[in-house]
Design a binder for these strands. Structure first.
Lengths: 341, 341
DNA sequence: CGCCAAAACCAAAACGCTTTGGACCGGAAA
DNA sequence: TTTCCGGTCCAAAGCGTTTTGGTTTTGGCG
């Protein structure tokens, strides 16, 4: 069923039917009701492509996600972010398109998305330091919002971020307050801006406590369970092992815990662990009693909020940029205790 | 830059330029080269929407993902599946659209996708027993492939599945072979077809070993870490605790392991664990020495293969349905040993 | 040189929608 | 009575492609 058929069936012009369905005032309420009823009855939905061509808007938002050299999308938070964003899109009649890209050809993908008119805007994931995507998107005129921030960006932009620096500063300070002096940081890849901020917060807390930064106790890498395990295993087997760990994600933290288990150690009793917790749907942090002491912030909520921010931006591209900073909530679980050293 | 501008710039008709770019024979190689060069130079990409309208094809594949009542998409494998599928789509110039849907309004979403001409086909995720989506999609004429199978489906369909029944039978048999007689099954939600098959395989192995099925040792639910932990905790605290666990995913298995740790038990030493391993990018099963004894099958590879299957189907809808059954690879890790009871 | 098929190109229609620029009608104001 | 205006509705022109159904040009052959 298309517009032509529906209008013939109703004995009306395509114009009138279109206006009736789109809520324009120049159609009587009587006919509007008739049209809406008929559309419902014949389950008519306007063809997205035609609509898009006529209006110049695709009503579709893009998400470009990077894969590593092995073709893996190492991003445990992806699903939850999408669930949150998808909620907002659905509520506003937007579609969501996801495009996979390797490290090279990134620029082409974005240019293409614009040239092909595939999306009205997009969410920039995993921003890097002075991320070249921000000036690129600004140049080609594709509205975007950033999940996180990009230090040293050459253009203004809208973003939503967690105060990673503060969260990691506070978390590390909490550990120094418990007497820990050899604290390990199992960080994300330091190409990524959030990881840089986390490291800064970590280092600031150490400095405040008069503790020298030990490069051997700082790791960076893709936030997998294996990575968390490997880092912790290596560090625990040193002559002077750390007494506490700061993990970049609950997945890493699980790896750290596994390394402890293997050595007969217990989190909280022998070694402390604090982790960032994205409130992943499939990997919670226990119930009322948190397993890990954690800095938590829901990535699903972030997805929903960022999507809304983007839709606002598309609706009014001239509006000032929105910049939202969320504070992570610090919860004390059973994975931390005084340093026994 | 659009086709009209490009053709004027070249002094050619839109027809010729279009044909040149799309590889039609009725254009000289000389002009084709000229056209291609110009398109490249001005970074012209045909507008997807217009193309789609003219051809009647969207060159876009849909993925509909369900969220639970809390709005969470509890699907740890989502990201990796998408990474695999996206690879195939990108290689064939297809886009990927993902739509979020709650439990109600599922039918509407699929009908709408078709009516709006948004996608050329879609992948059915998490099929249920006699899944109503298969006849629905067949009726409305939207090509699809299924990730898994649907027992009792009323229509023929293409699918790719892991031999879950066999995998769980073999895994359980492996455990009975080690002398275990109280084996727990931490299954997925049994609305889902794969979970039913897994349970059947599990029960078959018990029967073969002359072991009565104990309903108290069988759990079903969303495959989260907390779920794995809660089930294991409850079972381990029984008077006659299980000596082995069969977990539906490595995420659940991590939860089971946590429950063991809390009780001072070690996987392999005190209690055995076998898990299904989807080869998630962010949660591997150790390196050369697997952590868990596991049935493994890459969900990313499944995504890539299913996507290819769907594209084939769209290209030739009349072709017979493809049905692919993969055997999971059974790897022995350090989480299993003889029963000490 | 003339003829004809093949090669190379083109104008215009079509895809399904929105939107512009009216047309028509009845009733209120002049 | 005429004029004007708001309320309804419509025909047709886009949007940027592909594709149909040509026309023109080229080149080979008698």
């Amino acid at each position: 069923m298309n517009l032509k058929e529906l209008s013939q069936l109703l004995g009306l012009s395509q114009t009138t039917v279109s206006r009736a369905l789109n809520g324009y005032p120049e159609v009587s309420e009587a006919t509007r009701a008739r049209v809406v009823a008929a559309a419902q009855a014949h389950s008519y939905s306007p063809n997205t492509r035609a609509q898009s061509l006529a209006t110049g808007l695709s009503r579709c938002i893009g998400h470009v996600i990077s894969v590593n050299d092995s073709g893996e999308m190492v991003n445990p938070i992806f699903g939850d972010f999408m669930a949150g964003a998808g909620e907002t899109y659905a509520a506003h009649g937007y579609d969501m398109m996801v495009t996979r890209v390797g490290k090279d050809g990134e620029e082409d993908v974005y240019r293409n998305l614009k040239a092909r008119g595939a999306v009205d805007g997009l969410v920039v994931h995993a921003p890097r330091k002075a991320d070249p995507r921000l000036p690129l998107l600004t140049e080609i005129g594709l509205p975007f919002v950033v999940h996180g921030r990009s230090t040293g960006a050459s253009v203004p932009y809208s973003w939503l971020d967690v105060n990673n620096r503060r969260a990691f500063r506070d978390a590390a300070a909490y550990l120094t307050g418990l007497g820990h002096r050899r604290i390990a940081l199992i960080n994300g890849q330091e190409e990524l801006d959030f990881a840089i901020r986390r490291r800064q917060g970590f280092e600031a807390a150490l400095e405040e406590a008069g503790i020298a930064v030990d490069p051997d106790l700082m790791a960076r890498g893709e936030m997998t369970e294996d990575y968390g395990h490997a880092c912790a295993a290596r560090m625990l087997d040193r002559p002077e092992p750390p007494t506490a760990f700061l993990a970049a994600s609950i997945i890493c933290a699980a790896g750290v815990r596994r390394a402890l288990d293997e050595r007969g150690m217990k989190p909280g009793r022998d070694v402390s662990i604090v982790t960032f917790d994205d409130c992943l749907s499939y990997f919670g942090n226990g119930g009322d009693v948190p397993v890990f002491t954690a800095m938590q912030s829901s990535v699903r909520a972030a997805g929903a909020a960022l999507a809304q921010m983007l839709l606002d931006r598309i609706a009014d591209p001239g509006a000032p940029h929105q910049q939202t900073l969320w504070e992570a909530e610090f919860v004390i679980g059973s994975s931390t205790d005084h340093c026994k050293d």
